[in-house]
């Protein structure tokens, strides 16, 4: 009896706040619904409209670009940072602490600083370029194409993925390094045949969480640009939010949410299927 008492809140939570909303969104994605009047069935019209809507298409393309570049980029940078912070040099503890600091700045603070850094007028980047005498001053954050790359660049910064890789590195058994050294392997060989394979479970975890996180990218663009200029930094999560809570097109928002759901399920499934061939579990789990 006791296990069910312990788990009852969880079951209620799943039913009320996960299962029901997902099914409800599925139903309403086939309707026109503004909360104030009863939903009206329109079949596939929402889905058709979405694919014809240039704004939606742009947000989807921005998001796919963001995911495709920032996820692998973030993994590589996080891994490199973790490897560097695992070299046994003097002052390592201090370096690790310093490396964590930028990630602790809250989203609003980071947004404020980034807007300043990339602002064309008094911004840091343009100041540095001028200081170095380089003729590359740009309009950066007020340019509809460059703005996407600013958000991608901002995201590619170690962060929590780096910490997870670092924790993973502590779990690699010393015997493996010793054995590799005995066999006369060079550092690069050890990296590719010991360290990286042993880290693959952490890579899988980081890959999945950063993929799902990237599809939900919302806070930084909302704070910094509100999706502008000219929709250049409008990402998928923002148009779900806007359709539902600015335009009260709940049906549209539900269709968008379901497309996102399907995309994520497909990606997660593909990653898991492929993981059998590249993730190494010690003890063959």
């Amino acid at each position: 009896m006791l296990p069910f008492v312990f788990i009852l809140p969880w079951i209620l939570g799943v039913l009320l706040f996960q299962a029901y909303p997902i099914l409800d969104a599925f139903y309403h994605s086939f309707t026109i619904y503004d909360v104030f009047q009863p939903a009206k069935w329109v079949g596939l019209r929402n889905y058709r409209n979405l694919f014809e809507n240039t704004y939606t298409r742009m947000a989807l393309l921005n998001t796919l670009l963001y995911v495709a570049v920032s996820v692998p980029g973030g993994l590589i940078v996080g891994l490199l940072q973790a490897l560097l912070l695992n070299v046994k040099v003097r002052g390592l503890q201090l370096f690790r602490t310093l490396a964590i600091v930028p990630g602790t700045v809250p989203a609003a603070g980071a947004a404020a600083v980034s807007v300043f850094i990339w602002s064309p007028g008094l911004g840091l980047i343009n100041s540095i370029l001028e200081w170095l005498g380089l003729p590359w001053r740009q309009s950066w954050i007020i340019d509809p194409v460059m703005v996407k790359w600013i958000f991608i660049f901002m995201t590619i910064q170690g962060g929590i993925g780096m910490l997870i890789f670092l924790a993973g590195l502590q779990n690699v058994p010393q015997e493996l390094y010793d054995a590799s050294k005995m066999d006369g392997a060079r550092s690069v060989q050890t990296l590719f045949s010991v360290t990286l394979p042993m880290l693959t479970p952490y890579t899988l975890f980081n890959l999945l969480t950063s993929l799902i996180g990237a599809f939900q990218y919302f806070t930084a663009p909302m704070l910094m640009t509100g999706g502008g200029p000219a929709g250049g930094s409008t990402f998928y999560a923002q148009i779900i939010y806007e359709n539902a809570f600015v335009f009260f097109r709940m049906g549209h928002a539900a269709a968008l949410a379901w497309i996102l759901f399907v995309i994520c399920v497909v990606i997660v499934f593909a990653v898991f299927r492929s993981s059998a061939s590249w993730v190494y579990y010690e003890g063959g789990n």
Binding site: L16, F17, Q18, Y20, P21, I22, D24, A25, H28, V35, L208, I212, F215, Q216, Y236, A237, I240, Y241, A244, F245, M250, A253, A254, A257, W258, L260, F261, C264, V268
Partner: peptide
């Protein structure tokens, strides 16, 4: 864990 919050956002709010 792998379902984005945005999927359940709207129905939850209506609820």
């Amino acid at each position: 864990m792998l379902i984005p919050d945005q999927v359940t956002l709207v129905p939850r709010f209506v609820m």
